[in-house]
């Protein structure tokens, strides 16, 4: 099941916590990857760890021209086709809205939402031509529930969901599916840094009683990327241990 052999994928934010888990998961299912990220050293180190015949494409997602060039670069590096676009890269600039600076708003919207738009727009063309494509964006439970201090982040993640639904309708007849994965709390360097009291408060809200792992998101991504998920489009798959049931 969910064999991705012969498929190619562009993964953004590939050296990050969830991104690297997704990249490993897709590679384990047989996909060949273009790994993108902002930190070249981290990216190269991750690619070396991953092994296999993958390529690194560093990209600053706040640079519109660089983002526009990324999909064509990936298509070329992956031998002329792109089956899977995985929009994973994202940033936070948390602040109460009363204190939120214009730059904090713009940075988050530009990297989390606008870059995804540019990548989707560029990927739609080769996928339409190929009559096959899987576009998957990593959104967040807070894009649906909201979260104090994250007006910018929640807006960007809700935006990804709406954009994906629109594109799903545009491309469904071409066998291109467009979906989102909405992780809840996933264990990462950020959650490891929380105090025990903070962790307890978070866990109290999660019926599963534990934080999620990157592998939980990778499994969802492998499913949505697979040929078997061809009839699933415009959906948001929530992977959150039951903390929000939507």
């Amino acid at each position: 099941m969910f064999n991705l052999t012969g498929m190619t994928a562009l993964v953004t934010g590939a050296s990050g916590g969830i991104g690297s888990a997704i990249a490993k998961g897709l590679a384990a299912q047989g996909a060949r990857l273009a790994l993108s990220g902002s930190n070249i050293d981290k990216l190269n180190a991750f690619a070396a760890e991953l092994g296999g015949d993958h390529v690194c494409l560093p990209c600053n997602l706040s640079d519109a021209a660089a983002v526009d060039a990324l999909v064509p670069q990936a298509v070329e590096a992956l031998g002329g086709k792109l089956d899977i676009l995985l929009n994973n890269a994202g940033v936070t600039r948390d602040n109460l809205i009363l204190r939120m600076k214009d730059e904090e708003w713009q940075d988050v919207i530009r990297i989390n939402l606008e870059a995804a738009f540019r990548l989707m727009r560029a990927a739609a063309k080769p996928m339409m031509k190929a009559r096959f494509g899987r576009i998957i964006s990593i959104t967040s439970v807070v894009g649906v529930t909201g979260n104090p201090g994250q007006a910018n982040y929640a807006a960007s993640k809700a935006g990804l969901i709406g954009m994906s639904k629109a594109l799903a309708q545009e491309l469904a007849s071409r066998n291109v599916t467009v979906n989102c994965i909405a992780p809840g709390f996933i264990r990462s360097a950020m959650t490891d840094a929380l105090t025990d009291a903070q962790k307890e408060a978070i866990l109290a809200k999660i019926p599963a009683g534990a934080l999620g792992e990157g592998d939980d998101i990778a499994a969802a991504a492998a499913y949505l990327a697979s040929r078997q998920a061809g009839y699933v489009t415009g959906q948001t798959l929530h992977v959150n241990g039951g903390m929000a049931m939507i």
Partner: peptide, 9 residues
Amino acid sequence: SLDIVELVM
């Protein structure tokens, strides 16, 4: 409209 886009391509 999507057919037109594809035809143009």
